[in-house]
Write a protein that binds this DNA or RNA. Structure first.
Lengths: 171, 171
DNA sequence: CTAGCTGCAAAGATTTTGCATGCGT
DNA sequence: ACGCATGCAAAATCTTTGCAGCTAG
C-alpha cells in the first residue's frame, strides 16, 4: 500500500516493484518527486520540468505515468478545488494541507483530534469511512507582510475565478 | 454576503438584489436549486434539467449564470476532487460534506470541534485562515447493504479514475 | 432607450485514446 | 523475441469568450 522506505532510493526498483517497466519517462518523473520532497506537481509541471532538463517526454506519457503511479499508490492525486490535478509523493502517512492563496505554497499537517472527529461523524451518519480531504486556505506568514511579497518568486501562477492560484508550488 | 432568508421565495428579486437582471435563464437556474434543497448540480446537470422542462437555454449561458451566482454568493462552488464543478445553494451557514463513493449522495455536516482545531492549526502555522474544505468519502448506509443497491436510482453517474462518481446526486 | 444578457460558434484548457513504432526484460 | 510503453496525432471533456442581436428595467 505504501512505498518502500529505503534510504538508498532505487527508483527503477521502486517502479518495477509495482509491476511497471523502468522506462526513462517513468524514472525521470518519479525522480522529480524524490528530488523535490513535499512538492505538488501537475502533469504540466512535470512536463515542463523534464523539458528544461532536455528530456524528451510527451505530455500524454506524463499523464499516463502519473495515473499509473497514483493507481500504484506511489503518488497521491489532489485537486485542491482547482481545475487541474496535482500529485505528490506518497510517504505512507496520511496528512492534510494548508495552502497560501497568495503565493501558493503548501504545507502538510496532521491533527489527531480532527481525524477522530471525522471517524465519529462518519459513524453518526452511518457511513463506512474510506478517505477524506481537508484543506485550509489562507495567507502564509510571508504573504501577510507586504514588504516581503517581492522576495517570493512564483514558479508559475495564474489566479482563477475561485481565487486560488492554479499552480501550487514556488521555487 | 448571504442570501435573504425570506420564506416567500421571490427568485427574480433575489437575482435583482445582487445587481443582475432577472432573465429567464437566471430565474430558472436559481429555481432549480430552490426546488432541490441540498442538491449539488453541475453546469451540465442544470442544462439537462432545464432541457427536460423544454426550457431553451444554452450551456454557455448556464456556465455564465452559475459563475455569476457563485460570485454573488447565492451559490457555492465545489469540486469534490472530480474534474467538474458542482454548485449548491448558499444557505448562509458554513458546512462540510460527506459523500457516498458508491451512489454519490451528499450529506452536509458541521462540527464545532473540527472548526476550532482548524483555527488552531492555522494559528500554529502562522496563517491567516480564509476558508477551508473538508469532505469525507465513504459508503452510505444504503450502499453497505448489498440487497438494497438495486433500489437506488442514480440520476447519472460515471465512475472516474479516482474512484469517485462524476455526478453527485441521485433522484 | 440602452446597458446588460443570451445564443451561437469557436476556441481554450485539461486529459484521454488509438495506433504504429520502439524498448525493457 | 515478446509484450508492454511511448510518441504522435486526434479526440473527448469541461469551460470560456467574441460578437451580433435581443430584452429587461
Amino acid at each position: 500500500m505504501q512505498p518502500t522506505p529505503s534510504r538508498t532510493m532505487d527508483i527503477p526498483k521502486e517502479i518495477r516493484d509495482c509491476g511497471l517497466r523502468a522506462t526513462l519517462p517513468r524514472v525521470r518523473v518519479l525522480q522529480l518527486f524524490h528530488e523535490n520532497p513535499g512538492k505538488h506537481f501537475s502533469a504540466d509541471d512535470n512536463y515542463h520540468l523534464l523539458s528544461n532538463e532536455n528530456i524528451d517526454v510527451v505530455l500524454a506519457t506524463v499523464y499516463r505515468v502519473l495515473l499509473q503511479f497514483a493507481e500504484a499508490n506511489i503518488l497521491i492525486r489532489h485537486t485542491f478545488d482547482t481545475d487541474r490535478a496535482f500529485f505528490e509523493l506518497n510517504k505512507g502517512s496520511h496528512h492534510d494541507h494548508i495552502i497560501c492563496t497568495k503565493c501558493g505554497c503548501v504545507e502538510d499537517f496532521v491533527d489527531d483530534a480532527i481525524e477522530q472527529r471525522q471517524a465519529l461523524i462518519a459513524k453518526q451518519h452511518r457511513y463506512i469511512l474510506q478517505t477524506h480531504t481537508l484543506t485550509l486556505y489562507g495567507l502564509c506568514e510571508t504573504c501577510t507582510q507586504p514588504g516581503h511579497w517581492d522576495r517570493v518568486v512564483i514558479f508559475r501562477c495564474s489566479v482563477q475565478r475561485n481565487g486560488l492560484s492554479k499552480c501550487m508550488h514556488i521555487r
